[in-house]
Design a protein around this nucleic acid. Structure first.
Lengths: 154, 154
DNA sequence: CGTGAGCTTGACGTTAACGTAAACGTCATT
DNA sequence: AATGACGTTTACGTTAACGTCAAGCTCACG
């Protein structure tokens, strides 16, 4: 028989666990939550490429701080299971909602990056002035002072 | 007496709670976690502008899925309290760590946005073909079929 | 003076997202 | 036939981040 087309590949629970560096318990938990619906080969679960994708989506959601229910919502948006056809407008609304969240996150990240830039800059300055400057021609000069020893007594 | 410079303004717990739409319980919890260190006026807590900023940082962290401990770490990076001066290299390492996380989040958001674009596009297509098209000249045509009713029996 | 608004400190309850352990089934191999 | 390597279910435990009382101070106001 022909070597089953790659798209039909199935996975065991431990294969997926290894691939995504999660435990089998976690995968079973996702099933309990209704996020995965693997078929059964006797007792054992058989996962499809679709299940694998779902796990990817869940983990991406987690990296952005989404709860499992939020991820579930988004996955259901993406995969309009049943009856959703009658709810196209609702779907568009939810899409806008999610977009708003992502936009806020983008802004939050942007600001955080700027702040990290600032911290790093000051940190490098401190390094440069505390050490006699490696190849620099400028004398150490015992510059003003740490400039970050402001406030916060105690 | 002069009307106390704005930077010296202090806040009560409920003022901050209202401003950020969180409960006083939450603020006290943040204090227990060591994130806030308000002074005391007798029994009552007196919050400074710095405390207010800290709350802002915490909430921004939460929007990105950071735990309180993670936010605390970042805040401590930003506000090198004590002894950190000796750990400049460690600080730079942690900065790089945080940057990596933010970069991953940016990528995650980018992909999600693309996916939402895709869902929305198909959604609008479905709307256009299901309704007879408002000002269109093209006949409804009872197009192929929903094209999204693939797989997933049951 | 008592009453309400706002503050305090416990201390137990709750939810999400798993961890962990027990007890068992099923093969393939030794 | 026993030993692993893998799978299963059931069920209680754990952590984070608060929620939700309870009981009590304290101060201005009518």
């Amino acid at each position: 028989m022909p070597p089953a087309p790659k798209s039909d590949r199935t996975f065991t629970i431990s294969e997926l666990a290894r691939e995504f560096d999660i435990t089998t318990r976690t995968i079973r938990f996702y099933e309990d939550m209704g996020l995965l619906k693997p078929e059964r080969r006797g007792q054992s679960r058989i996962f499809t490429a679709g299940d694998r994708t779902t796990i990817k989506l869940i983990l991406r959601g987690k990296r952005l701080g989404f709860s499992l229910l939020e991820s579930k919502e988004m996955i259901e948006l993406y995969d309009p299971a049943e009856g959703n056809v009658t709810q196209l407008q609702t779907l568009l609304d939810k899409l806008a909602e999610k977009r708003a969240i992502l936009a806020q996150q983008l802004e939050d990240i942007r600001v955080m990056q700027l702040e990290l830039d600032d911290v790093e800059r000051r940190c490098r300055e401190a390094l440069a002035t505390s050490r006699p400057a490696r190849t620099s021609k400028r004398a150490p000069k015992t510059k003003s002072n740490s400039s970050r020893t402001s406030g916060k007594k105690r």
